[in-house]
Design a binder for these strands. Structure first.
Lengths: 245, 245
DNA sequence: CGGCGTCATTAACCTGTGATAACCACCATG
DNA sequence: CATGGTGGTTATCACAGGTTAATGACGCCG
């Protein structure tokens, strides 16, 4: 489903302090490459695993995640997508998309034309470099995920993930009264961390009872960020200004 | 240490069938951006974790790996680097390099000038796109690593890793008499798969006794690739032609 | 309003993998 | 030719986390 096109100059995300300001002509070039918006409802498949042709999108609103699965159904979530994130680039560059993307909440996507990426590289080196920056940044997230799943204990994994998501949500202005919206079920947490749902629940209980987090009603609050960082052995370097679109 | 510069037109890797042929003027531009070669001995740190300024390299010969560690010393290998792989791009784009790189064998690196990446984007869109392709491709490898570590059993992990490395080594012409050079110790395998060394050893014994692999004397042979794929639940899509440099 | 699916929670039980330790083979080095 | 370091192998024991199952709360829909 396509929606009327919102010009990128009026993009609600751009004014956020997390995003790098662009020169007006760059914004115009990006706007020109935009072909529409796409809405997906919660739980919908945004991009199918192994899909042959993909376009590139920017997530404007809502949460989603990238995942891969094994034939027998075991699923691993690779990372979560928040507003401002780019998706579908791997499908554009490699022949097929090697992972799926699913919406966690209703989602609004900014869709680019199929020629958008090559044309950025041809005519707008600055934007092309931004695209590559976003790819490198996402790889950093996945690198962290490997470290988490490979070497952290269950308690550390959960704590690290919650801190990570809290910071990211905060950076796109989602904090309200100390808490962020938290659309993940425990199954999502488990699938992101390589744990079973049951054990994920046990760990969450411990974090709640220890007063580290408040997680109810689809919202997450973190009592003491420093303490949670310590529990999770999680010390990410603060992300510098991030390009958008 | 810097070595005399080998012109890229004479690069021994380029003729390999795994690599996409480039137009001669592109090869020349790449050659012009090359500032020298760097040799590292086995076990040396190629790039330090958290290093502030990095240059970009292409691995010409030898094996290396990217890794991250936790403060208490737990280490996770993110992926292995084989000839033709690009390293250091994240250090160039993000402010600091979020991972370390260590040589597994003596290694020969092709070093690019600090302006190389921006200049490719400015003047050679085709090459810039190749750089981004390589970044997207590496992310795919790491995505697979998350799936492996998060959702495969120990046996599956080891089998999948061995098949993966075998295929990659084969694609750069390293097969000799059915086997490839295999410079990893069991500690490396363990650190890549989120396992302990001892358990890694147990699993390798089982694979050996089952006749699935021959692993001795720093060389690896796989008896029945199909069987190993099944053991590892590993069905990667064959990599299409890959850009070089 | 009753039925059904999703999600959270808890209990009981079990197992794959980690930890520790000891020993061996090798090989580089003084 | 003793020495120490690295890497591999095996055994024993312990536990983190998986599995299965049952229950309840809630929301959706016919």
């Amino acid at each position: 489903m396509m929606e009327p096109v919102l010009p990128c100059s009026a993009c609600p995300l751009r004014p956020l302090p997390a995003f790098k300001p662009l020169r007006p002509e760059e914004v115009m070039s990006i706007s020109a490459a935009k072909v529409g918006q796409r809405l997906c409802s919660a739980g919908a498949t945004v991009l199918a695993e192994g899909q042959a042709t993909t376009r590139v999108y920017v997530l404007l609103a809502g949460w989603a995640f990238r995942f891969k699965s094994l034939e027998d159904g075991r699923r691993q979530i690779l990372n979560f997508l928040l507003p401002g994130d780019l998706l579908g680039l791997q499908g554009e560059l490699l022949a097929r998309l090697p992972h799926g993307v699913e919406a966690l909440t209703p989602v609004n996507l900014c869709a680019f034309g199929s020629d958008a990426v090559p044309s950025f590289f041809r005519d707008h080196p600055g934007i092309a470099l931004d695209v590559t920056w976003l790819a490198a940044h996402e790889e950093r997230l996945v690198d962290d995920a490997v470290l988490t799943v490979g070497r952290r204990t269950a308690m550390e994994r959960v704590a690290a993930l919650l801190v990570h998501l809290f910071k990211r949500a905060a950076s796109v202005g989602l904090v309200e009264r100390d808490s962020i919206p938290f659309p993940l079920t425990q199954l999502h947490i488990a699938d992101a961390l390589g744990l079973s749902v049951v054990h994920t629940n046990r760990v969450l209980q411990r974090l709640r009872k220890g007063g580290f987090i408040r997680l109810e009603d689809q919202r997450l609050a973190i009592g003491d960020l420093g303490a949670m960082r310590r529990v999770g052995q999680y010390w990410e370097q603060p992300a510098p200004l991030r390009p958008l679109l």
